[in-house]
Amino acid sequence: MIYSMCFLLFLVGLYGVLTKRNIVKIILSVGIMGYAINLFLILIAYREGAGFPILTPAEPSKAMVDPLPQALVLTSIVIELSTTALLVALAIKIYQKYHTFDIRKIRRLRG
């Protein structure tokens, strides 16, 4: 089953979030989970033997895949980039304050 492989990719990201103690690794794991979700939505939308959802004059009534999940995933991809940018900014700020990427050492609240 191809959906369960996609879910396995999601679980790899979940494993990274759960076990890693380095902030860079956690950011990467969040990215992996986002990839898995996007891929799953596009896999759901695929129709066998269908073409891309662009009408061409040559074959005006061909079978096409579902364009609606593709539109939503397009939004999601761009939002993931902004999430990554925000996480990276926070990580740089944390590093400047604590001089470490280790999440166990980031404990004290300092103004």
Partner: peptide
């Protein structure tokens, strides 16, 4: 491969 060329372009750049 899943017939989403626009998404492939956006994903590549992003």
């Amino acid at each position: 491969l899943l017939q989403a060329p626009d998404l492939a372009l956006v994903q590549f750049v992003i």
